[in-house]
Design a protein around this nucleic acid. Structure first.
Lengths: 159, 159
DNA sequence: TGTAATCCCATTGACGCCCAATAATGCCCA
DNA sequence: TGGGCATTATTGGGCGTCAATGGGATTACA
């Protein structure tokens, strides 16, 4: 499997380092990432972390914007200038920099959240809050769909 | 048969392990699953467990969404980040992790419920409650249909 | 030359692997 | 149809391995 999946919470040691979960390290190697690039998410206190192809997705997004509008320029600034590299040491640990701390508010524990082709970094408490929000939104969506199609009832799950 | 069918309740041992029912293990092998992936059901205290193709269905669903809307992001978060791997040991047992316990409330016994292409994990008591709920809903639905179609009453039905 | 990042090695503890014991099931034969 | 046997599923628990961690030594950088 070469996708980042599941969530793991790791401890930050006295020197400010944190081990990247073994499963994630396997994915990083399988994908051939030599270095990790981190971007601050716009509307949530999390970082998107991935290889060079993390930028590809964003750049494709920029390409679809009108280059004369400010949006494209803002996006470029956000992606190319406002990110940071995360270097892993020989043990697969990375330094929890101020860049990470300031945006996520992590203190002594840090959550790694798989997102398929990349992963996210969260402060565990904030993550669980966000997770509850997401689940509530999806449940609402599901119930709305039920009302659309048939009469109520039918509790089953997605096939 | 290569579908997960029926229900089995198994004991959790002192080391926090539980044997996957032999019948389910046969299906797992027949389907060639090397590892199992578990998702927390949205509105019930159960886990959906299946192979990698459990994700495939969801990812196909995501692909049909506008990737820049929040719904697609929520779905990705739920599927990629909010699940967990269940590793089976050489005897076909799996570790009952906190991830499982927190959502299902299992203590010392755990119910495996076949759902065709995947199966579910339940706390036995809650499962029987849920089973009663499902039957009640279906019965209500059926009776409502009866009233709609034919003249009222009609108590005894063909078995 | 002080600070911080990186490397290296030791320790720990969880997890997977293995073997053995018991229980359950199906099968065969009288 | 019933009893005995063989096979398999389910358990229990010991042990080794490896990931996660802690901390000292070394190097890079300002």
């Amino acid at each position: 499997m070469d996708r980042f999946l599941s969530t793991a919470v790791m401890n930050i040691d006295a020197k400010g380092r944190v081990s990247v979960p073994g499963r994630f390290r396997q994915v990083i190697m399988a994908r051939g990432y030599q270095e990790l690039y981190a971007l601050r998410c716009l509307d949530i206190p999390a970082l998107d972390v991935g290889g060079p192809d993390l930028l590809d997705a964003y750049e494709a997004r920029i390409a679809s914007e009108d280059p004369f509008l400010q949006t494209a320029d803002d996006m470029s600034f956000f992606i190319h200038g406002d990110g940071d590299f995360l270097k892993m040491d020989s043990e697969g640990r990375l330094q929890v920099s101020d860049f990470i701390r300031a945006h996520t508010n992590v203190a002594d524990r840090i959550a790694f959240v798989g997102r398929g082709k990349h992963f996210q970094i969260w402060e565990p408490e904030r993550l669980s809050d966000y997770s509850a929000d997401v689940r509530a939104r999806l449940l609402k969506l599901r119930q709305a769909k039920l009302l659309q199609t048939s009469s109520g009832a039918a509790q089953g799950e997605p096939e």
